[in-house]
Computed example of a mutant assay.
Amino acid sequence: MDIRSIFMGLAFALMWSSAFTSARMIVADAPPLTALSLRFLISGLIGVAIARAMGQSWHLSRGQWRSVAIFGLCQNALYLGLNFVAMQWIEASLAAIIASTMPLLVALLGWLFMGQKVRPLGIAGLIAGVIGVAIIMGSRFSGGVSIPGLILCGIGALALAVATLTVRGASSKGNVLMIVGLQMFVGAGILAVAAMLTESWQVNWTPRLGLAFVYTTLVPGLIATWVWFRLVDRIGAVRAATYHFLNPFFGVAVAAVLLSEQIGVADIVGVVIVAAGILAVQLSKVGATAG
């Protein structure tokens, strides 16, 4: 793996993980579903405009439209929507840790329901992931964590894992930005309806809200997605996915620095174990691919 690929992987993990901290800032001053719907609308417009300027087409294949619909619903509306709502009650670091278990959920669901083989190293990684999450949750429960918030984050991670398994292997055929932009429109539409039914327009306009919204829209929303697909093109999806093991570290670190969230010894131990589990699962896939 070359230096440029390593830098891209680190950058993607940091941008992805930082989204939870910026989301926490947003929901402190604005209704979560309304803010997220607006973010998707803006990101989608920018993404589609850039895609058209690059010559990409919105005349997609049936498989590509299926990808747009599934990821628009599961990733944008359910996964991110539920996380935004949950972060009204739970800390960004905890939301990042729960979301980081998605590769473990993908491996587990594929093993249990789709007959996908998991090597011994992968099984060890799944067990380590469960142990790490149990350690973190045990510590947080004693501190009075929000149960509804945890449930929403868990459902969101499960929805993203299901979507990943459902459309695994779908080819973008050069239409990466167009597909990403259209997925954001799907999420924007679904969340706009949900926001009109459940939220009122009450916004506390602050500089922090503005900066967090712009950052979330451009960096995790568009730049991180672009970097991810470029990384996949360079080293393949399986090897690129190994960088997910950094997400718990970065998610906790960014929240501690920018939001002054308290991190205990149990959190650190649990994060290390979860990260090791994610790495083991991904390395087992790399070994299987090489074999």
Rank of each mutant, 00 (worst) to 15 (best):
I46V: 15
A107P: 04
I97Q: 11
Y243D: 03
L152Q: 11
A275K: 00
A266N: 08
E199F: 08
L105P: 09
Q116G: 06
L78H: 05
S142V: 05
I42G: 05
F12S: 02
L152N: 03
W226L: 13
P248K: 02
V274E: 00
E91L: 12
T21S: 14
A30K: 03
A92V: 13
L112N: 09
A95L: 08
L209Y: 06
I155K: 00
V272P: 04
V238C: 08
I223H: 11
M137D: 04
L182K: 05
G110D: 03
W16C: 01
L197Q: 13
G44A: 03
Q56E: 14
D29R: 07
P32G: 13
G138E: 05
S171L: 12
A212F: 08
V281A: 10
K117C: 06
V85P: 02
A237S: 13
L218V: 13
G9E: 08
L121K: 12
I46D: 08
Q282K: 09
L14I: 15
L105K: 02
L41G: 10
L82C: 12
A30R: 09
S142D: 13
S17I: 05
L94V: 14
V130Y: 08
G174K: 06
P248D: 02
V286G: 11
F84A: 07
L109D: 02
L105F: 12
A256L: 09
A13G: 04
V118Q: 15
F250Q: 02
G251M: 02
A188H: 08
F113N: 10
F185Q: 00
W228F: 14
V186E: 01
A19E: 05
A255V: 09
V227M: 07
A241I: 00
S18W: 07
W58T: 10
I26M: 13
N204K: 10
Q202Y: 05
W89V: 09
C74D: 00
I90E: 03
K285P: 00
L231T: 08
A288G: 05
I127M: 15
F185A: 03
L191W: 01
L41P: 03
G143C: 01
K285C: 04
A195F: 08
A276Y: 07
G251I: 04
A212I: 12
N247P: 01
M178H: 01
V176S: 09
E199D: 09
A253G: 02
A92Q: 12
M114H: 10
A92P: 11
V203M: 13
S142T: 12
P31R: 09
A163S: 15
G189E: 09
G143Y: 03
G129F: 00
V27K: 07
L10H: 13
G149R: 09
G132W: 01
Q202L: 12
F20Q: 05
T164C: 03
G122N: 11
L121Y: 08
A96H: 03
G189T: 02
S100L: 04
F250T: 04
I190W: 05
A35P: 00
I147R: 08
W16Q: 04
V269P: 01
L80N: 10
N83L: 13
G144R: 13
I46A: 08
R4F: 07
R168L: 01
Q116Y: 07
G9S: 10
Q262S: 15
I6P: 01
Q56N: 07
A95Q: 05
F7N: 11
V133D: 00
G264M: 10
V265D: 01
G270F: 04
A280K: 10
T21Y: 07
F245K: 01
G122R: 11
A276Q: 03
F249M: 04
V281Q: 10
